[in-house]
């Protein structure tokens, strides 16, 4: 019986990750770098926000949540005060040296950093509150990011080996950019030399500006560069590099350019094609509404969008 129990506890500890708790962000970051483990940071405001306090006490520190984390990670907490006095501000600055509060837009929040300090993910707002309905969900999310962090470290580690082999380097860069974590902050600078021809389209995807591309298209129309812009947009659409969400915006830009040339039916077709790629998302809805107002409403048989 005792042997069975020993085996059971051994199995459980094997399945659970090791959580190293280090108070103070600066020290925790050192520990993360030193141990090559991701750093998981709870940012809370327990002194002024009861929900933060409940989350911290009943969730974050709860055994069932921690038991659900399978990977080895470092944990720390940052308690952000309300109206801190000068001495409190000073102490806070020292304790959180190196911390970037920028991605914490609502409290509480969980940030996950790679051992090299790269911010892998930031969970907060409604996303965190929905996950927090189930501790295993949050644990598995952290696990997934930690796993992606390990994969990232492996891929980055292999880059050096393939400096003279663009095909292998390109595969790894592409895999890195497709990981479900925040993108590398300076991917173009880091990797352009390794894969100058952008074999797998990672650079095109990374550089695509989203709605800023739409804004730039408006500017080009205003400057009278419609024809040149249309040629570029068609070239982008011929590429297979772009994700569906990006193609949606590129098609919207095509619709704008065709409308500017007076080709209303072709423009409306482009808007509809864009919408079909993201019919329920905010981008698709905005594009079809704009398209209907500017061209669709004057085309016989065109259907007004819902809402």
């Amino acid at each position: 019986m005792s042997r069975i129990l020993v085996c059971f506890f051994f199995l459980v500890s094997f399945l659970c990750g090791e959580i190293t708790e280090v108070p103070g962000f600066a020290k925790a970051r050192e520990a993360s770098a030193g141990s090559a483990k991701p750093l998981v940071v709870l940012v809370h405001g327990s002194s002024w926000h009861r929900a933060s306090q409940l989350f911290t006490e009943k969730f974050w520190r709860a055994a069932d949540f921690r038991a659900g984390i399978a990977r080895d990670v470092v944990f720390t907490e940052i308690d952000v005060r309300q109206n801190p006095k000068e001495d409190e501000q000073k102490a806070f600055a020292e304790e959180t040296q190196g911390w970037d509060r920028g991605t914490v837009r609502s409290f509480p929040a969980i940030q996950i950093y790679g051992p090299d300090g790269h911010l892998l993910e930031s969970l907060g707002g409604s996303m965190l509150r929905e996950l927090a309905l189930s501790p295993p969900l949050v644990a598995s999310k952290i696990d997934a990011i930690a796993a992606a962090s390990a994969e990232r470290d492996r891929l980055l580690g292999e880059m050096d080996q393939f400096k003279t082999n663009p095909e292998e380097a390109a595969k790894r860069i592409d895999a890195l950019c497709r990981l479900p974590i925040r993108p590398e902050t300076d991917a173009a600078t880091k990797f352009r030399a390794l894969d100058p021809t952008d074999r797998y389209g990672w650079a095109a995807r990374h550089a695509f500006g989203g709605w800023e591309f739409i804004r730039a298209t408006s500017d080009r129309i205003a400057k009278g560069e419609t024809d040149a812009a249309l040629v570029e947009v068609d070239a982008m659409l011929a590429e297979s590099a772009y994700e569906p969400a990006q193609r949606c915006l590129i098609l919207a830009a095509k619709g704008m350019l065709l409308a500017a040339k007076g080709e209303k039916e072709a423009a409306w077709a482009a808007y509809q094609e864009a919408h079909a790629l993201d019919p329920r998302g905010p981008d698709g809805k905005a594009i079809i509404r704009h398209g209907y107002r500017t061209v669709g409403s004057s085309i016989p048989g065109a259907t007004a969008p819902e809402g």
């Binding site: 109206n83 907060g124 707002g125």
Partner: peptide, 8 residues
């Protein structure tokens, strides 16, 4: 949900 901050 999305703009929960300390008052200051």
């Amino acid at each position: 949900e999305e703009v929960c901050l300390p008052a200051d």
